[in-house]
Amino acid sequence: VTVHVDGVEYDFDNPEEALKFAKKVAEDKNGTYEVHGNQIRVT
């Protein structure tokens, strides 16, 4: 699973970890996250 944040890609073997990371980053920057299959984009 790849999490995209501001043009940087973070790869996770564990989808739950990826989702947790995306949620935290989105909260920290008052943004949102979208899941597209095995890609998660934080905006």
Score class of each variant (00 low, 15 high):
residue 40 I to D: 02
residue 1 V to Q: 04
residue 7 G to D: 08
residue 42 V to D: 02
residue 19 L to E: 07
residue 30 N to W: 06
residue 14 N to H: 07
residue 13 D to Q: 11
residue 19 L to Y: 08
residue 26 A to L: 06
residue 35 V to P: 03
residue 21 F to Y: 07
residue 36 H to N: 13
residue 28 D to L: 14
residue 39 Q to I: 15
residue 32 T to N: 09
residue 43 T to A: 07
residue 35 V to F: 09
residue 27 E to I: 12
residue 28 D to Y: 11
residue 41 R to D: 08
residue 11 D to K: 15
residue 17 E to Q: 08
residue 29 K to A: 09
residue 4 H to E: 09
residue 28 D to H: 10
residue 22 A to F: 01
residue 34 E to D: 06
residue 38 N to L: 06
residue 41 R to N: 14
residue 14 N to K: 07
residue 18 A to F: 00
residue 42 V to P: 02
residue 2 T to S: 08
residue 10 Y to W: 09
residue 26 A to H: 02
residue 19 L to W: 07
residue 32 T to K: 11
residue 30 N to S: 08
residue 37 G to E: 08
residue 28 D to A: 14
residue 17 E to K: 06
residue 42 V to T: 02
residue 5 V to I: 10
residue 41 R to L: 15
residue 3 V to M: 02
residue 12 F to W: 03
residue 18 A to R: 00
residue 31 G to D: 03
residue 22 A to V: 04
residue 10 Y to L: 04
residue 14 N to E: 09
residue 33 Y to G: 01
residue 12 F to Q: 00
residue 37 G to K: 05
residue 9 E to V: 15
residue 12 F to H: 02
residue 39 Q to K: 07
residue 1 V to C: 09
residue 29 K to T: 15
residue 41 R to A: 09
residue 15 P to N: 09
residue 8 V to T: 10
residue 1 V to E: 02
residue 4 H to I: 15
residue 28 D to G: 09
residue 10 Y to K: 03
residue 21 F to R: 00
residue 11 D to A: 14
residue 23 K to E: 09
residue 10 Y to E: 02
residue 23 K to F: 05
residue 34 E to R: 07
residue 1 V to M: 14
residue 32 T to L: 07
residue 25 V to P: 00
residue 43 T to R: 10
residue 23 K to G: 05
residue 21 F to A: 01
residue 23 K to W: 05
residue 20 K to W: 10
residue 37 G to F: 05
residue 31 G to F: 05
residue 41 R to G: 04
residue 30 N to I: 04
residue 14 N to P: 01
residue 12 F to M: 02
residue 23 K to Y: 06
residue 35 V to I: 14
residue 26 A to C: 13
residue 32 T to H: 12
residue 20 K to F: 10
residue 19 L to G: 03
residue 13 D to M: 09
residue 2 T to K: 10
residue 39 Q to C: 13
residue 38 N to V: 04
residue 36 H to T: 11
residue 22 A to D: 01
residue 31 G to N: 03
residue 10 Y to T: 04
residue 3 V to T: 01
residue 33 Y to L: 11
residue 39 Q to D: 11
residue 27 E to Q: 14
residue 21 F to E: 02
residue 30 N to H: 12
residue 42 V to M: 03
residue 27 E to L: 13
residue 30 N to F: 08
residue 8 V to D: 08
residue 25 V to T: 10
residue 10 Y to S: 03
residue 18 A to V: 01
residue 40 I to P: 00
residue 22 A to K: 00
residue 39 Q to S: 12
residue 40 I to M: 03
residue 22 A to I: 02
residue 42 V to K: 00
residue 16 E to I: 11
residue 41 R to H: 15
residue 17 E to L: 08
residue 6 D to L: 06
residue 30 N to M: 09
residue 20 K to N: 13
residue 13 D to I: 10
residue 1 V to G: 04
residue 25 V to F: 07
residue 8 V to G: 05
residue 23 K to P: 01
residue 2 T to Y: 06
residue 13 D to G: 08
residue 33 Y to H: 03
residue 43 T to F: 15
residue 13 D to T: 11
residue 19 L to K: 05
residue 15 P to H: 15
residue 23 K to Q: 13
residue 39 Q to L: 11
residue 40 I to Y: 04
residue 25 V to H: 08
residue 11 D to T: 14
residue 7 G to K: 04
residue 33 Y to D: 01
residue 41 R to W: 15
residue 43 T to M: 13
residue 23 K to R: 10
residue 11 D to R: 15
residue 10 Y to N: 03
residue 40 I to A: 01
residue 6 D to G: 08
residue 43 T to Y: 15
residue 43 T to Q: 12
residue 27 E to V: 10
residue 9 E to H: 12
residue 42 V to E: 02
residue 19 L to R: 05
residue 22 A to L: 02
residue 27 E to G: 10
residue 15 P to D: 08
residue 12 F to I: 02
residue 25 V to C: 12
residue 5 V to D: 04
residue 17 E to I: 06
residue 6 D to K: 04
residue 7 G to I: 03
residue 22 A to W: 02
residue 7 G to E: 06
residue 35 V to H: 06
residue 4 H to N: 09
residue 13 D to A: 12
residue 30 N to L: 07
residue 28 D to R: 09
residue 36 H to E: 13
residue 15 P to R: 14
residue 37 G to P: 04
residue 28 D to I: 12
residue 16 E to G: 08
residue 22 A to M: 02
residue 17 E to Y: 05
residue 37 G to L: 06
residue 43 T to S: 12
residue 18 A to N: 00
residue 34 E to Q: 10
residue 7 G to R: 04
residue 16 E to T: 09
residue 12 F to N: 00
residue 16 E to H: 10
residue 28 D to M: 14
residue 14 N to M: 06
residue 36 H to A: 10
residue 26 A to Q: 03
residue 11 D to N: 14
residue 9 E to P: 09
residue 14 N to W: 06
residue 22 A to T: 03
residue 25 V to K: 09
residue 43 T to P: 04
residue 23 K to V: 10
residue 39 Q to R: 07
residue 39 Q to V: 15
residue 13 D to R: 09
residue 39 Q to Y: 13
residue 41 R to I: 15
residue 28 D to W: 12
residue 3 V to E: 00
residue 23 K to A: 11
residue 20 K to A: 15
residue 21 F to H: 03
residue 27 E to Y: 13
residue 30 N to V: 05
residue 34 E to N: 06
residue 40 I to W: 03
residue 30 N to Q: 10
residue 33 Y to P: 02
residue 6 D to A: 07
residue 31 G to I: 04
residue 33 Y to A: 04
residue 7 G to L: 05
residue 25 V to A: 12
residue 29 K to N: 13
residue 4 H to D: 06
residue 11 D to F: 15
residue 4 H to L: 14
residue 1 V to Y: 15
residue 3 V to G: 00
residue 36 H to M: 13
residue 12 F to V: 01
residue 30 N to C: 09
residue 41 R to M: 15
residue 14 N to R: 07
residue 27 E to H: 14
residue 19 L to F: 09
residue 35 V to N: 04
residue 39 Q to E: 14
residue 18 A to Q: 01
residue 9 E to W: 11
residue 18 A to H: 00
residue 33 Y to M: 08
residue 19 L to C: 11
residue 6 D to Q: 06
residue 6 D to H: 07
residue 16 E to C: 11
residue 31 G to M: 12
residue 13 D to C: 11
residue 5 V to G: 01
residue 3 V to L: 02
residue 17 E to P: 03
residue 20 K to S: 13
residue 3 V to W: 02
residue 40 I to R: 00
residue 15 P to Q: 13
residue 37 G to M: 05
residue 37 G to R: 04
residue 1 V to F: 15
residue 19 L to T: 05
residue 12 F to Y: 05
residue 26 A to G: 03
residue 24 K to A: 12
residue 29 K to W: 14
residue 20 K to Y: 10
residue 9 E to R: 13
residue 33 Y to S: 02
residue 11 D to L: 15
residue 9 E to D: 10
residue 23 K to C: 06
residue 16 E to W: 11
residue 35 V to M: 10
residue 8 V to E: 12
residue 35 V to W: 14
residue 1 V to R: 04
residue 26 A to M: 04
residue 40 I to K: 00
residue 30 N to T: 05
residue 9 E to Q: 14
residue 34 E to W: 10
residue 28 D to S: 13
residue 14 N to I: 07
residue 42 V to H: 02
residue 4 H to A: 07
residue 31 G to R: 06
residue 2 T to F: 06
residue 34 E to A: 08
residue 40 I to F: 04
residue 1 V to I: 13
residue 2 T to H: 06
residue 36 H to P: 00
residue 3 V to R: 00
residue 24 K to C: 12
residue 2 T to E: 03
residue 16 E to K: 07
residue 26 A to F: 03
residue 28 D to K: 10
residue 36 H to S: 12
residue 8 V to K: 13
residue 24 K to Q: 13
residue 9 E to S: 14
residue 2 T to V: 12
residue 43 T to L: 15
residue 23 K to L: 07
residue 3 V to Q: 00
residue 31 G to P: 02
residue 29 K to Y: 15
residue 30 N to D: 08
residue 22 A to C: 05
residue 41 R to Y: 15
residue 17 E to W: 04
residue 8 V to Y: 11
residue 11 D to V: 15
residue 7 G to V: 03
residue 41 R to S: 13
residue 36 H to I: 15
residue 24 K to S: 10
residue 27 E to K: 14
residue 37 G to T: 04
residue 18 A to L: 01
residue 42 V to S: 01
residue 5 V to F: 09
residue 17 E to D: 13
residue 33 Y to E: 01
residue 25 V to R: 07
residue 9 E to N: 10
residue 23 K to T: 08
residue 4 H to Q: 08
residue 6 D to S: 06
residue 22 A to N: 00
residue 17 E to F: 04
residue 21 F to D: 01
residue 34 E to Y: 12
residue 43 T to D: 11
residue 19 L to S: 03
residue 38 N to P: 03
residue 9 E to L: 12
residue 34 E to K: 08
residue 27 E to T: 12
residue 39 Q to P: 02
residue 11 D to I: 14
residue 29 K to C: 12
residue 36 H to D: 14
residue 42 V to Y: 02
residue 11 D to M: 15
residue 14 N to G: 09
residue 38 N to Y: 06
residue 37 G to S: 05
residue 8 V to C: 09
residue 8 V to L: 12
residue 9 E to M: 14
residue 17 E to R: 05
residue 3 V to A: 02
residue 38 N to E: 05
residue 3 V to D: 00
residue 38 N to A: 06
residue 25 V to E: 09
residue 17 E to V: 06
residue 2 T to N: 04
residue 14 N to Y: 07
residue 6 D to P: 02
residue 8 V to N: 09
residue 24 K to V: 06
residue 35 V to S: 05
residue 15 P to E: 14
residue 34 E to T: 13
residue 2 T to A: 05
residue 32 T to Q: 10
residue 7 G to P: 02
residue 22 A to P: 01
residue 6 D to V: 03
residue 5 V to R: 02
residue 32 T to A: 09
residue 42 V to C: 04
residue 31 G to L: 07
residue 15 P to A: 14
residue 10 Y to M: 04
residue 22 A to R: 00
residue 10 Y to R: 03
residue 13 D to P: 12
residue 31 G to Y: 11
residue 5 V to K: 02
residue 26 A to S: 08
residue 2 T to P: 01
residue 28 D to P: 03
residue 12 F to D: 00
residue 30 N to Y: 07
residue 26 A to I: 06
residue 22 A to H: 01
residue 31 G to H: 04
residue 38 N to D: 09
residue 38 N to I: 04
residue 18 A to M: 00
residue 16 E to L: 10
residue 30 N to P: 03
residue 21 F to M: 03
residue 37 G to D: 08
residue 31 G to V: 06
residue 35 V to Q: 07
residue 29 K to I: 15
residue 31 G to S: 06
residue 34 E to H: 11
residue 15 P to Y: 15
